[in-house]
Amino acid sequence: MSRPGRDDAPDRLYTITGGRSGAGPDNPFDLVTLVVAESEPATGMQSEHAAILRLAEFPVSVVEIAAELALPVSITKILLGDLLAAGRVSARHPYRPAITDPDILEQVLVGLRNL
């Protein structure tokens, strides 16, 4: 688990979140929540917030944001919670009836078997 060179940014995670480690119970985000920016990044904004706003110019999932920022998902959720509270992003859960539709699943299964 020793990963020399991995840690090539001096920011510690708790300084990014201001010491918070949890997003709270009413945090609406999960891994696949889609996030859309509602405003442009403003100057003086925390760089992660600005980066999220730029990433979320088009809907993007939480896990993608986390991967882009190279931050743990929990931390990303806290940042997103800040932005959501400030009204700078909106969140919605992905519309995915395709996954739950048994017909599609059956067709996928058939297609897989035909491979």
Binding site: L34, V60, V63, E64, P94, R96, A98, D103, I104
Partner: peptide, 15 residues
């Protein structure tokens, strides 16, 4: 099957 999900589909597999 679902013509709607033009946008969500590319994102669905991303996770």
């Amino acid at each position: 099957a679902h013509g709607t999900a033009d946008e969500t589909d590319p994102y669905a597999p991303t996770p």
